[in-house]
Design a protein around this nucleic acid. Structure first.
Lengths: 235, 235
DNA sequence: CGGGCGAAGATTGTATAAAGTTTCGCCTGT
DNA sequence: ACAGGCGAAACTTTATACAATCTTCGCCCG
């Protein structure tokens, strides 16, 4: 009888080997080292991480479920190439969900969390000073994930993880080349609103932040990404 | 060179063997033939579907990502047992997302879609007349999924699929035994609002519908599900 | 008589090998 | 010279075999 279902060591993405592969490939995609459309051969990745194709396959399937990898039957896995329509859907979803997330984050506000947020802001400013666009995008995504973790809602967190991953891909694909790093100031404003427990301000700033990010994108016609991809591939 | 990257036959859950397994297990869980906490042995399922453990494993991993199965390392896969806290998160997310979904569904309203919705309402009424609780829950979920498909937003659709699957599990676990089948009338009202292109009415009715479903649940303390499960297991 | 230790059995995690499919190059025929 | 088809190579898919881990049952000791 007694033996109950103890949660045990239930680390979500612990030090599994498949998690290492998944995070490695994710980082490579999000840092633009793997371009959209690139084929992800199982042997290739397996040799890099010293793992068998079995593990690589499960990692790729997870990435496919996250939406940053496409798996075509009998053809293999490729880095996803979100269309402008996909981009609009992703940002609409974020505009819907994230204001609610900050609202809940305020409920969970504590000195420890505030400290963590401000520490993150410092990292973002540093990356921006260096002009490191890759790190900027990555840290910007992590800021939003941090707020979601703070909210304590696992459902929203899971959804947002997926949206952030896709957003990073979208931003790297469609960002206007002349725009500066997107508003770190916005993040600071959101944190300030959270500190003051000003729900309306936090929601409004999150919303305008997301709107501005999308406005800085080049989401014209479906052919645009083809052109851009061709340009980037240097062919 | 030009003709590249056609989407091809990209049926999401086509007639793959792994999809058949996934859908079969999903149906069994949602129809309460597999109770929460039940162990899903790989050999066992593999023998049922005449498939090797490789395929069963991938199906189980997909179900785990959908949230209706828990996989514990070196222990196996089990039917998920959502806590009351999980239930509240799921329904909060649905209250956030679904009003927006109906809004978009109105944009996509067409005679064909209206017909399909009404046809579905007829099926629901029939199941309700039979007093078939299983079919009622299943069809209720399918109604919401239908509206999401109608909206044309793949992101929302994906999220909602997950939420519906979890909701079915939650409803079957925590439903008060004396409540009648939850409002088929509500669904009819939502369809009527969609037909009239009355956005505000549609959003409001969807919201109140979800609120009422959650209100009919027995979401008291965390120990409640333990008791109920023990009761259900008949031990 | 109760509790802890230990070995056997069962089950999952991982790797490797066989099978099927697609793709690309090459060759032949017109 | 060009179009079409044949064939081989590479890849994914699926199945099987091996290794690691956990569970369970029995036994011994206190």
């Amino acid at each position: 009888m007694a033996a109950k279902s103890r949660p045990k060591s239930d680390a979500p993405d612990a030090s599994d080997r498949v998690s290492r592969i998944r995070e490695g490939v994710t980082a490579a995609i999000l840092e633009h080292r793997l371009l959209p459309g690139t084929k992800l051969g199982e042997d290739e990745i397996g040799e890099i991480y010293g793992a068998s194709r079995t593990l690589v396959r499960t990692a790729l399937q997870q990435l496919a479920h996250e939406g940053i990898v496409n798996i075509e039957k009998n053809r293999g896995a490729f880095v996803a190439r979100p269309t402008p329509a996909d981009a609009r859907e992703v940002f609409e979803a974020r505009r819907l969900i994230e204001p609610t997330i900050v609202d809940h984050a305020i409920d969970a506000a504590s000195p420890a969390w505030i400290d963590r947020l401000q520490q993150h802001l410092a990292e973002e400013r540093e990356a921006e000073l260096r002009g490191d666009a890759r790190a900027s995008v990555r840290l910007s995504g992590e800021f939003h994930r941090l707020v979601a973790e703070m909210s304590g809602h696992s459902i929203y967190l899971g959804f947002l993880k997926e949206l952030i991953a896709r957003s990073s891909l979208i931003i790297l694909l469609y960002r206007r080349h002349d725009t500066p790093a997107c508003g770190t100031d916005h993040h600071a404003g959101i944190v300030a609103a959270i500190r003051k427990c000003d729900r309306e301000a936090a929601r409004a700033q999150m919303l305008s932040h997301l709107t501005e990010i999308e406005a800085e994108l080049f989401l014209k016609d479906p052919a645009a990404d083809e052109l851009r991809l061709a340009d980037v591939l240097g062919a």
